[in-house]
Simulated assay, not measured.
Amino acid sequence: MPLTQTTRGQALAMYVVYDSPLQMVSDDPSNYRGETGFDFVRRVPAAWDETRFLAGEPGEDIVLARRSGKAWYLGAMTSERARTEKVPLRFLPPGRWRATIWQDGEVVREVRRSTRSVTNADVLTLSLAAAGGAAVILEPAP
């Protein structure tokens, strides 16, 4: 059984937080098919139009927002200390947005996916396990 140092939620958040022109999975993509979160990996871009630091302390946690076209992507990561991140969405333009959220589940391999409607007046609450994280896509609501 492999030893993991992060949760699946943090692995997803890394695609947003770490700036890399080459996005990839760490082994054969067939191992990821059907797994929660792989839909995020398929959609996350490798280049960004805008980046915003939203919160964090060195060595403790980070919340970063990056825009590609009209969509915003959030990555939230924490250290060995579990925490709840409250993320104000005031950086979003006015209007209704669909937030698709992938965040830590009960065990390191589990990620919970949810969708909700938000505006720039809302605050997202993200539950991060120890060495955990969350990834979010914010898109203009249809």
Rank of each mutant, 00 (worst) to 15 (best):
G133N: 08
E110A: 12
M24H: 13
W102F: 10
G95T: 09
P2Q: 15
V87Y: 01
E85M: 07
L128K: 00
A46N: 15
T84P: 00
A65R: 10
A121F: 05
L22R: 08
R112S: 12
G75T: 07
R109A: 09
P21V: 06
I137V: 15
T125V: 08
V108W: 04
Q103T: 01
P94M: 10
N31R: 13
A130E: 07
S114L: 10
V136L: 01
S68H: 15
A13K: 12
E106N: 09
G75F: 08
K70C: 09
S79W: 13
R116F: 05
G59H: 00
A76P: 03
F38E: 14
E60Y: 07
Q5L: 10
A65M: 13
A47R: 13
E60V: 10
V41F: 15
A135E: 04
R112K: 14
A82Y: 09
S30W: 04
G95R: 12
R8N: 12
T51W: 04
A130N: 03
D19V: 11
G95N: 14
G75S: 10
V44E: 11
R83Y: 03
R90P: 02
P29G: 00
E85S: 13
V111S: 03
A135N: 05
E50N: 06
V44F: 09
S68R: 14
T7H: 08
R42D: 10
L89S: 05
T119M: 11
V107N: 11
P140L: 11
P2A: 13
A134M: 08
D28H: 04
L64N: 03
G59P: 02
V87R: 01
E35L: 15
P93V: 09
R66M: 04
Y32K: 03
A13R: 12
R33W: 09
L64W: 01
W48C: 08
G75P: 06
G75Y: 08
Y15W: 05
L22K: 06
K70E: 15
T7F: 08
G9T: 13
V118P: 06
A134L: 11
T78M: 01
V44L: 12
L12Q: 05
L12R: 03
K86E: 02
A99I: 08
V87S: 00
M24C: 06
R67E: 03
F38L: 05
Y18S: 11
Q103R: 05
A71V: 11
R109K: 05
V41I: 15
G34L: 04
Q23T: 11
L128T: 02
A134D: 03
K70Q: 15
R81T: 13
A13P: 09
V107C: 05
G133W: 10
P21A: 09
V108E: 04
A55E: 03
G59D: 02
Q5K: 02
E57S: 05
D122N: 02
